[in-house]
Nucleic acid binder design. Structure first.
Lengths: 235, 235
DNA sequence: ATGTTTGATCTGTGATCACACTTGATTTGA
DNA sequence: TCAAATCAAGTGTGATCACAGATCAAACAT
């Protein structure tokens, strides 16, 4: 009798290399906006902070550079890409295109379990906001990410999903500031758009889901855009 | 008197590392389909073939893996991703979405010089086909790539273009077989679609350009799809 | 004859070192 | 006093070595 016949399915154990851990850590730091746009990163400094040798770090940095999450200057120094008005608009337009397609593809494929998971995220999120602790902004961001990718994963495209991950990686340093400002201003009712997305997905309305998503991801970008414009005028 | 005052503008010399050369070479090999889908690549073997140490090779492979041009198996071995029906459809659908958007964005931005360059590519291509030498298939592919990216570059999006490059990298091993079969069958009149694209772009008709592009990139995929289906039936 | 163990070989990974280049402060020169 | 030259610290890059795990074939036991 094999394991399969016994009803047991073993998940692949999947050995994790040091490079993978470094990559995940840098990725998390980038998406949550730990590094400021324009900040230069050095291999040895990161290796010290992560308590490894330079080897895993340089390979992880190479991967992040090829995903456009980091930028290699002609000086051979590495920095997180600085933000500009053109880049913000470019990122938002592309995210609307690709993530909009992903949610439209996912709409007819969402299971009841998927919908339940989404609703669960929203209640968790509500609990966080009721606490009123401003230190929960990182957890909120993580919850937001989990919410979106629960949807995208259902689209069934092994090509689209890595692209969306790359886009989040690129817009992470940008949107961090916007989300933080949102949380302070108390006007972070993107929960409204999330509930719209859930309702649309639950009833299989692809176009409505896409529109709710576009509204959701456009808001922080528009906020950041205004902030950048006023700062430019001030300078 | 500075160089600028003398009217001289020097282009940055841009030192090229060994890793960059290895990366470009592997990239070229992948797009032109030198490696078969499913083929496993080893670092030391590539390092020997490229006459360098393993160091630049492993970093170049890491970059290609994060672009999904190569695949890291849980065995830690590296291979070019095998083709499947789902993957083909996935790649084509995504390419239609993204490259279609790119050409629509490029349509109102094309200069007369751009159009001339495109026409020049077509005449070069015609010369190649008049020669009738079957060994020119690689040059034809290079010309086709130059044609498409002359357009995409005009879209002005620093986010979209790397994504398109990644998509070409992923579909390279797939379409190679199709292009080759086309050339043998003599039915490679994708020149028709290219001329349609030029005409649409020259008159700024974004939608028409998009449709011509979709027809152009769909053909080899449809061909490959049929080939894969008949082979599956035969097996 | 079949299934298991063993052994050699090859693989990717990580660490360490050497080197060329950049950078910034210090010293030197007019 | 100020600009130019100089020196030292720090950077990414590439090479080489050590090591654990994978792979496959031969030898073994059942």
């Amino acid at each position: 009798m094999t394991l399969g016949e016994a009803g047991l399915t073993l998940a692949p154990v999947g050995r994790e290399t040091v490079q993978d851990r470094v990559y995940s850590e840098l990725r998390r730091a980038l998406i949550s906006g730990l590094f400021a746009p324009g900040q230069v990163l050095t291999i040895r400094q990161l290796a010290d902070a992560l308590m490894t040798s330079t080897m895993p770090v340089r390979e992880a940095l190479g991967r992040l550079i090829s995903e456009r999450a980091l930028e290699a200057l002609p000086n051979r120094s590495i920095r997180v890409p600085p933000i500009s008005l053109e880049r913000i608009d470019d990122l938002l337009r592309t995210r609307i295109l690709i993530e909009g397609e992903a949610i439209a593809l996912a709409a007819p494929r969402m299971t009841a379990a998927n919908i339940d998971t989404l609703r669960g995220y929203m209640t968790q999120w509500q609990v966080l906001r009721l606490g009123g602790d401003p230190a929960t902004v990182d957890q909120e961001a993580a919850l937001n990410q989990a919410f979106h990718f629960e949807i995208y994963s259902a689209c069934g495209s092994a090509v689209l999903i890595p692209m969306i991950e790359s886009l989040w990686l690129q817009s992470g340093p940008c949107t961090r500031a916007a989300i933080f400002a949102f949380s302070e201003a108390g006007e972070s009712d993107s929960a409204h758009f999330h509930h719209n997305m859930i309702d649309a997905l639950a009833s299989g309305k692809a176009q409505a889901a896409r529109e709710a998503l576009v509204a959701d991801i456009s808001r922080p970008f528009a906020f950041l855009r205004n902030k950048l414009l006023s700062k430019e005028i001030a300078a």
